[in-house]
Nucleic acid binder design. Sequence first.
DNA 1: AAATATCAATTGATAAATCAAGTAATTCGG
DNA 2: CCGAATTACTTGATTTATCAATTGATATTT
Lengths: 175, 175
Amino acid sequence: MARRAKSQAKIGPAETGFTLEDYILYNLVRTAATYNEEMAKALKRFRLDTMKWRVLMLLNDKSPSSVGELARRSVTKMPTLTRVLIRMEEEGLIVRQAQQDDKRVVQVTMTPKAVTVLRAVQAIGQKIFERAIEGVSEAEAAAFTATLKRVRANLGRSPYEAATEAPSDLKARAS
Amino acid sequence: MARRAKSQAKIGPAETGFTLEDYILYNLVRTAATYNEEMAKALKRFRLDTMKWRVLMLLNDKSPSSVGELARRSVTKMPTLTRVLIRMEEEGLIVRQAQQDDKRVVQVTMTPKAVTVLRAVQAIGQKIFERAIEGVSEAEAAAFTATLKRVRANLGRSPYEAATEAPSDLKARAS
DNA sequence: AAATATCAATTGATAAATCAAGTAATTCGG
DNA sequence: CCGAATTACTTGATTTATCAATTGATATTT
């Protein structure tokens, strides 16, 4: 890149003298990972992990949900999710059953046991949440969420098809 | 407890009628995952994954780095990272060697090959980045990063060990 | 209606991540 | 100094995630 960064804070990679700490998406990923780690610690005593917890939250949000729906909303590959669901069913947290009008889709439903567990976990989740956003105003929080959604929407439309192996014309200096 | 959420848009769990889509931390995790997924797709043709790429970025930022340092900055468990590094060394991307004055610590350095690879990958990373923040103003981006850092800092201080800590932390900025 | 394509979800083989325990190097307390 | 404690990392055993087919069910084409 030439020098678009001369009169602003650095917000992208490939800048001279650039450090990762200033890179938005690095901060995004790292903060998310820190949050996941924190939740994972708290979830241990409920014999849950972030994956199972996320599934329960999604089901709490909308139940029943199909496997594909859960995979999309949790950004998880379907084979991975299938196996998570198998474990959760063995633990009595969910029930899986084929949808009547289309037997390809599998509907996932929370059990009463899962509802009970989730209530307890949510209390802890709430505490961690409150700690996380301490000192963040409501306006700031709203703006933050808006940016998150925008970034995600932007990433969603993925123009990735052309397979280029050799790094020949990769430098995007022109703009 | 904070009851800040009762007369505003929902920003946390455990509220009646609440949906995950409004929950900040869900959006945080989901957007980060989407970004990782997008990067992973792009990295494939370089025979890299997000983990290796993150290590290279961290090394690009500061080289050499110790294993522990890389683990902390990439929010990865050390055993996991050790094995990533072993693979990367086999692929000729990094070199590991014991630090002279303290032979417990292992210094990780990029090879010239890795530098070449990274340059090519960064170009693609830049494209994805630019797509990600399309329509996001610099001010918005700055505010976003500030919130991310604050949230991460908040999560950093664990609830169990923060008891003896002074109420006004020196580092945290008020405005 | 039979053949073909498409779709949702699962499975088999394999790679990767994780916990617990282990090793080697350094520091600390007596 | 010597032995216990700590640090920095690695390894063994196990769980979990992922890719590449595969199954079973519905749509579409001819």
